[in-house]
Amino acid sequence: MSENQGARSDAERHLEESLASVREALSGLRYGNVSLTIHEGRVVQIDVTEKKRLKPN
């Protein structure tokens, strides 16, 4: 495997892991926000803000 292929598979692996993390953040979230922080083309942080809806009295 060449160095370029190794770097490509590392990037693909990171992308798959990032997508899995985003899916996990979205599962079960009914109301809220998911924010991604990208640094040098890679996901480095996922922020989830969940909002709770209260029923009116």
Rank of each mutant, 00 (worst) to 15 (best):
L54I: 05
G41S: 05
V43A: 12
V44C: 09
N33P: 00
S9G: 00
G41K: 02
A25P: 03
A20G: 12
H14T: 00
S35G: 02
E17M: 10
L15D: 01
R30W: 15
K55T: 10
A25Y: 14
L15V: 05
N57E: 08
G28N: 09
Y31I: 04
A11V: 03
P56S: 05
V48Q: 09
K55Y: 11
Q45F: 02
E40K: 13
D47I: 06
L36Y: 13
T37Q: 08
S18D: 04
V43M: 14
L54T: 04
Q5E: 07
V44M: 13
T49P: 00
N4A: 10
R8H: 07
Q5L: 09
E24V: 02
A11E: 12
H39M: 07
L15W: 12
D10F: 15
S9C: 05
N33L: 06
S27R: 15
L54G: 01
T37C: 01
G6Y: 00
R23M: 10
V22H: 11
G28Y: 13
L54S: 06
R13T: 04
R13P: 01
E50N: 05
G6I: 00
V44F: 03
H14M: 04
Y31G: 00
A25L: 07
S27A: 08
G41M: 03
V44E: 15
M1G: 11
R30I: 11
E3V: 11
S9R: 11
V22A: 12
L15G: 00
T49R: 15
G6H: 04
G28A: 05
E17W: 03
H39R: 15
E40M: 04
R53Q: 13
E24Y: 15
